[in-house]
């Protein structure tokens, strides 16, 4: 038996919104330590990894490890039926091919039950190495979203350059070019407004902006975003999911021939 009850159900709605444009189908892995998911986009350029720890749920039970094959479009449709203030409970029997979703209004006067068919998925699991990065940049998530949106009007690629002075995002295209530079700003009143840069070595990498724009669907989950980079390896874009976990997006760089 698997059962997970989340009082702040809006978190699950936001997580789903943050995943659905990148991944069409995914295996949600349930273990006693929590829920996790790892999936590549259709063109195998990016990978998303979600962790929601068991202790972040008000109730969590998982007697046997389960891999629930989920059509993300269906999951989105059903989670849209939940109100933002609803408590969401997920339930599945060990051998069932269905996931039950229950939405309770805050005062308990409305209870909705949905059942979603699960799929048999044969998902390729990649081994993500634990590694140190040359640069880690933390910045307001809305600023990152704004930069990606603005520069995607200029060109298809963004060059991210991180030095001790700051981080620069540049794009160029047929009509011209654009550059946005963010400098470290430790004086901001709110922690989420701070820009912090930790660097052991300067980094410059080129990425397809359309993927970064998809990652920014997670903006509503967290006030800040962390970008981790080293030369010639995938970028990591991480959003915290409150104090219960994270969504990490990995994006392969573009490399000169």
């Amino acid at each position: 038996m698997f059962e997970a009850r989340l009082v702040q159900g809006s978190l699950l709605k936001k997580v789903q919104e943050a995943l659905k444009d990148i991944v069409q189908e995914a295996s949600w892995d349930c273990t006693s330590s929590g829920l996790s998911l790892q999936a590549m986009d259709g063109s195998h350029v990016s990978l998303v990894q979600l962790t929601l720890r068991a202790d972040g749920f008000e109730k969590y039970r998982c007697d046997r490890n389960l891999a629930m094959g989920i059509n993300m479009g269906s999951m989105s449709k059903i989670l849209k039926c939940a109100g933002n203030d609803d408590v969401i409970t997920l339930k599945a029997e060990d051998t069932s091919d269905r996931l039950e979703l229950m939405f309770e209004s805050p005062k308990g006067e409305k209870i909705s039950n949905y059942e979603m068919k699960l799929m048999d998925l044969d998902c390729e699991q990649l081994g993500i190495p634990d590694q140190e990065y040359s640069c880690s940049i933390k910045m307001p998530s809305h600023e990152f979203a704004r930069i990606c949106r603005d520069l995607s009007q200029i060109g298809e690629c963004v060059v991210i350059t991180c030095t001790k002075d700051g981080v620069q995002f540049s794009a160029k295209g047929d009509m011209g070019s654009g550059t946005v530079k963010m400098s470290q700003n430790l004086g901001a009143e709110k922690e989420d407004d701070q820009v912090t840069i930790e660097m052991t070595e300067p980094v410059q990498l080129t990425f397809a902006i359309k993927y970064l724009n998809m990652f920014t669907k997670a903006t509503s989950l967290s006030g800040s975003v962390c970008l981790s980079m080293s030369n010639d390896v995938p970028l990591v874009v991480e959003y915290k999911v409150e104090d219960m976990g994270h969504i990490k997006y990995f994006l392969a760089p573009k490399i000169e021939d």
Binding site: V45, L126, G127, T206, P234, F250, I255
Partner: peptide
Amino acid sequence: SAQQVSIRSFFTGR
């Protein structure tokens, strides 16, 4: 121009 690399080429299967 720069070529897109696959994410799989960085992370080996397990």
